[in-house]
């Protein structure tokens, strides 16, 4: 099965992100394809490299990054939602003359068309949110 996963909540306020992560990891382990993970609403906060959670708590952003690296996963953060919430890659940070980029490795910033495209091409779309 070819899935697209949508994450609508941030990594620590809500369980949705970690559930989405565990689903994605399990689906890949079972041989399914995840064509894209799309982060929207506060879900874009999963893409910040600046989280430092306590060591005895899940390292959610790092886990997404690691999964992206291990599995060549396409992690897409919505540009409009990201700009509202201060998630910037190098290009966006420069364009808006901000002090620094903070997009975590393994993520990329793109438009909402990437969500619609994926929903058309995938066999199943799963939304993880509130």
């Amino acid at each position: 099965m070819n899935f697209v996963v949508v994450v609508n909540e941030g990594p620590y306020q809500h369980q949705a992100s970690y559930t989405a992560y565990r689903f994605t990891r399990s689906a890949l382990e079972k041989g399914h394809k995840i064509m894209r993970v799309f982060f929207y609403h506060d879900g874009v906060n999963n893409g910040t490299s600046l989280t430092v959670p306590p060591q005895d708590e899940p390292q959610i952003v790092k886990q997404w990054c690691q999964l992206a690296q291990d599995r060549d996963l396409d992690l897409v953060v919505c540009v409009a939602a990201a700009q509202r919430r201060g998630i910037m890659d190098h290009r966006e940070a420069e364009r808006h003359e901000l002090s620094a980029p903070n997009l975590a490795p393994g993520f990329r910033i793109a438009g909402l068309g990437q969500l619609i495209d994926a929903s058309i091409d995938a066999e199943r779309l799963l939304v993880f949110g509130d």
Binding site: A80, A81, L112, L115, I116, D117, I120
Partner: peptide
């Protein structure tokens, strides 16, 4: 949520 959902719908509408 609703405002950003409208943005998705407006993008989806051109597909």
């Amino acid at each position: 949520y609703a405002q950003e959902a409208l943005e998705v719908a407006l993008v989806g509408a051109v597909f």
